[in-house]
Amino acid sequence: MCPTAITPGETEILLDNWYNAIRLNHVSKAEQAKRRVEAKIDGMMEDQTFMISYTLLDYRHHILLKNLDEAEALLQKVEPFKENFDHSLTYYYYFFQGLYFWTIGQYHDALNFYKKAKKRLEHTKDDVEKAEFHYRIATVYYDLRKSLLSINHVNIAQGIFHKYQEFQNKDADCENLLGVNCIALKQFEDAEEHLLFALDLAQKSDDEELLLLIKYNLGYLYSEQNLSSIAIRYLKDVYKRQFYNPKTLFLLTREYLKTDQPKKAFPILEEGLRVCKEIENTEYFYHLNMIKALHSDHSIEELERIIMDGIKYFESEDLWYFVQEYSERLANIFYNTNNHEKASDYYHLGHVAKDKLFFREALK
Results as ranks from 00 to 15, higher is better:
D355T: 13
R233F: 08
Y321S: 11
A343F: 04
I279Q: 10
Y19N: 09
I156H: 09
D237P: 07
K342A: 10
L15A: 00
W320T: 06
K258G: 08
I13F: 09
R274W: 11
E270M: 12
K82S: 11
P267W: 01
V323M: 05
K342L: 08
Y335V: 03
A157D: 03
I333A: 03
K77G: 01
M308E: 12
C174P: 02
A71C: 05
E122D: 11
L235T: 04
D109Q: 14
S327Y: 00
K29T: 06
Q187V: 05
G43D: 12
L257P: 04
R254T: 11
L14K: 01
A157K: 00
E301L: 12
G310Y: 01
H348D: 13
F359N: 07
N176C: 10
K215V: 06
V27H: 07
E208M: 10
I183Q: 02
I268V: 11
N155F: 15
E189W: 07
Q106S: 15
N17D: 15
S205E: 07
T259H: 09
I22F: 04
F161Q: 05
F85V: 01
K364V: 15
K312S: 14
W102V: 11
A117N: 03
D173T: 04
K240P: 06
K312R: 13
E175W: 11
D47S: 05
A353T: 03
L212D: 00
L74C: 04
P262K: 07
K119A: 12
E302S: 14
F50M: 03
R23A: 09
L227M: 13
E189S: 15
P3Q: 04
K356M: 08
E12L: 07
Q187C: 08
L227N: 10
A231S: 07
E70G: 13
T259S: 13
R241V: 04
Y142G: 06
D206Q: 11
Y94W: 08
A191C: 05
A33S: 13
A131F: 00
E341R: 12
L199E: 08
H61T: 03
E46K: 10
Q324S: 12
E325G: 02
E301P: 06
Q32T: 12
F314D: 01
Y54F: 13
M308P: 02
N338W: 08
C174Q: 00
L75P: 02
Q32L: 15
H287T: 06
N152V: 10
F243L: 06
D206M: 06
T49E: 14
A138Y: 03
H87V: 11
W102H: 14
L185W: 07
W18G: 01
L201E: 01
Q242W: 09
K292Q: 11
A198P: 00
I22A: 03
R254E: 15
L273G: 00
V154T: 11
E361D: 06
L211Q: 11
A362D: 10
N169A: 14
L196K: 09
L252D: 03
K364Y: 13
A71K: 01
T90Q: 12
N169G: 07
M44E: 08
L185P: 07
M51H: 02
K170V: 02
V352G: 03
